[in-house]
């Protein structure tokens, strides 16, 4: 068996792929892939994640460029948004019989 030598594709940079299904829709994370550079990543992303018209547009982002929140700190980190019931419509009472919505 030939020994794997030289550049191997899994040691190329990792890219995260985002697809937009239709114009106006948000971009969604589709998956990741390895590619030598941005253009190569875009071409591979088309072949891997858009073989059936799943995407109108593609983004490829170097995985290392993404900063993510840490699951272990999720509690305190999202806390400011979790205890403010008054930011939801259900917090407010409307008189009986009146349709506000």
């Amino acid at each position: 068996m030939a020994e794997p030598t030289g550049p191997t594709d899994s040691h190329w940079p990792l890219w995260e792929v985002f697809t937009q299904g239709n114009v106006g829709e948000p971009f969604e994370h589709a998956g990741s892939l390895h590619a030598t550079d941005a253009e190569h990543a875009l071409q591979n992303a088309r072949d891997v994640y858009a073989r059936r018209g799943e995407a109108m547009n593609l983004w490829v982002v170097p995985s290392t460029a993404i900063t993510a929140s840490a699951p272990s700190d999720a509690g305190p980190f999202f806390d400011p948004g979790n205890d403010k019931a008054y930011r939801h419509p259900q917090f407010y009472k409307a008189p009986r019989g009146i349709r506000v919505f």
């Binding site: 068996m1 030939a2 030289g6 550049p7 594709d9 030598t36």
Partner: peptide
């Protein structure tokens, strides 16, 4: 599978060289 992998080596090398 090994043959396909070995035969693809030049493609991986070319892609790296091009980049």
């Amino acid at each position: 599978r090994r043959k396909a992998h070995d035969d693809g080596q030049w493609v991986r090398e070319a892609a790296s060289a091009h980049a």
